[in-house]
């Protein structure tokens, strides 16, 4: 995994780092229990202040994405699946929104749509 920082972006650097780490977990290039580079070595690689990296790591830990073991390092928490699930759930939510908008446009009422949905659910699941 290689993180690239855009210095001219308005997005704070620590947020860029967080975003890229999460993306790496999502696409599988960072696996669960993988060790992230140490704060000092990442700050050396990116040529930024160590506190910025620490802020990113601390925030990720708060969100439950990583776990820091004192004296050992920072590790990817078993959230790969969770992150993927969140992402996929969001996709489903968006798809459902679209369907509802379409139904609305057609003039379908809430009850009709609900009945349709429950019927299909019973068939498939």
């Amino acid at each position: 995994m290689h993180i690239i920082i855009n210095n001219s972006s308005m997005v704070p650097i620590y947020e860029q780092i967080m975003g890229q780490i999460k993306a790496a977990i999502l696409d599988g290039s960072l696996l669960t229990d993988a060790m992230l580079p140490s704060v000092r070595s990442l700050s050396k690689e990116l040529k930024i202040s160590a506190l910025t990296v620490k802020k990113a790591y601390d925030n990720l830990e708060e969100q439950g994405v990583v776990v820091t073991v004192h004296g050992k390092g920072t590790f990817v928490a078993a959230v790969g699946g969770q992150l993927r699930r969140e992402e996929e759930t969001q996709k489903i939510e968006r798809a459902l929104e679209q369907v509802i908008m379409q139904a609305k446009g057609l003039g379908l009422g809430k009850n009709e749509l609900s009945e349709l949905f429950v019927m299909l659910l019973d068939d498939i699941m």
Binding site: K47, I48, S49, L51
Partner: peptide, 21 residues
């Protein structure tokens, strides 16, 4: 690119102290 925090000094007084990020 190097420092974690910066002190700015002018005329013998610290005018600013802030983390670089």
């Amino acid at each position: 690119n190097l420092c974690d925090d910066l002190y700015m000094i002018d005329n013998g007084r610290i005018v600013l102290h802030e983390e670089t990020n």
